[in-house]
Design a protein around this nucleic acid. Structure first.
Length: 370
RNA sequence: GAUCCCGUCGGCUAAUGGUUAGGCCGCGAGGCUUUCAACCUCGAAAUGCGAGUUCGAUUCUCGCCGGGAUCACCA
């Protein structure tokens, strides 16, 4: 069976640096095994999904050279298929309508929490037959009550979760649209994904996804949950830790190979080697070398790598990139000194192309403050 | 709170049931350089704690502590 991996971001914001590292691992694993890398846009949340964000994902992936073999697929274009599975499950009893209102659910959750329990749906609509006046029902998956789910994770090892810990999750909202955990498994199954490589935060979703896959009559894929990237304070990397938008790094004058190289070494290593080209990574990457512990984002090391690549990159390409950088700031490269000279003068002292452009700006006739 | 995951220098990490626990970033000192950067040399710096197994644990087991994730009609 040929390896198929997928990167499945939701287009609700910028292309996040953490997401890109996951995408990189998916890409490397597929390439390493001569398989395919699929891009899928998870846009079922129509409120928050934007075209702008879709563009950012495509733009960022292309900039980094992480080319996909199939897609992008959009979940919003697959609603008929989800409906089909929903109807089938409603038919055969693997799913059912639940008429509890949001308010009722919230109240019960609150109670359980106060009682020191894990908040869970109590299954009260499981055997309900009649509709409820004035309530549009959601659809829930009938999760097995007994037994346990065993995940054999490529980086975590064996993780076992009792079904008693799980509840019947909502797979379609009262407006009929399907929800995340459900669309994921339908898509992974339909798209023949063999290896699901994703963030750690999905580990606890995995048991219920496996249960749904079984309900679909499909053998679950292999899983690999990679650790998250943390900010300097130990919490999940976010905007307040600095730039998390991949495209910001392009704007700030980082080379894509530097960012990729930095990211691959976060949670993965190959002996003492620090410098890896994309080809190196493809031939060396293995999930068994991925660390189980979370790692902290370190901007200084990224800068060091960027400078390394600036020092070693051909002058031609650097000149082109520098020209783009200058143009981006409203300067016409032909008004200034020969770019090759600039590159050679600054390649040992500029950490970013942006810095190089700033150092050059004063040489322009119509100087503009960057 | 419940469940699950994680724990080697300040950060990223390597290694092994027995090494002076290695490398990279950063940091400090020195060298080179008119200066800065780059570059070179040297240095400080870690196995969370407590038991157990063992001739010997950083490595295997358990407990503790610490951190994280999840528990949505978000993804």
């Amino acid at each position: 069976m040929t390896v198929r991996t997928r990167f499945a971001p939701s287009p609700t914001g910028v292309l996040h640096i953490g997401g890109v590292r996951t995408a990189l691992f998916c890409y490397l694993y597929a390439r390493r095994h001569g398989g395919q890398f699929v891009l899928r846009i998870e846009d079922t949340d129509r409120e928050r999904s934007t075209q702008e964000s879709v563009d950012a994902i495509l733009d960022g992936m292309a900039w980094l050279g992480l080319e996909h073999d199939e897609g992008p697929f959009f979940q919003t274009q697959r609603f008929d298929r989800y409906r089909e599975v929903l109807d089938m499950w409603l038919q055969n009893g693997q799913a059912y309508h639940c008429y509890c209102t949001r308010e009722e659910l919230d109240a019960r959750r609150e109670q359980q929490r106060n009682a020191g329990l894990k908040p869970r749906y109590d299954g009260r609509c499981r055997d309900r037959r009649e509709a409820r006046e004035g309530v549009d029902p959601v659809i829930r998956f009938r999760n097995p009550v007994e037994g346990a789910v065993r995940i054999n994770d490529a980086v975590r090892g064996v993780v076992t979760v009792a079904n008693a810990e799980l509840d019947d999750l909502i797979i379609a909202r009262s407006d009929g649209t399907p929800t995340y955990n459900f669309t994921v498994i339908v898509d992974d199954a339909d798209m023949n994904i063999t290896h699901v490589i994703r963030g750690d935060d999905h580990l606890s979703n995995t048991p219920r996804q496996i249960n749904m896959l079984h309900a679909l009559g499909v053998e679950p894929p292999s899983y690999a949950h990679v650790p998250m990237i943390l900010g300097a304070d130990g919490s999940r990397l976010s905007k307040r830790h600095g730039a998390v938008n991949v495209l910001d790094y392009r704007e700030r004058g980082f080379l894509p190979e530097a960012l990729i190289n930095y990211l691959v070494r976060l949670g993965w290593s190959h002996g003492d080697q620090e410098i890896f080209s994309l080809d190196d990574m493809v031939s060396l990457f293995d999930l068994k070398d991925v660390n189980a512990a979370a790692s902290t984002f370190n901007p200084e090391k990224l800068e060091w790598l960027n400078q390394h690549y600036i020092q070693h990159e051909h002058g031609d390409r650097l000149s082109e990139l520098l020209a783009a950088q200058l143009e981006h700031h409203g300067l016409d490269p032909s008004d200034g000194p020969p770019l090759h000279d600039v590159v050679e003068a600054y390649r040992d002292r500029a950490v970013t192309l942006r810095a190089m452009a700033e150092s050059t700006a004063y040489l322009f006739a119509d100087e503009i403050a960057l």
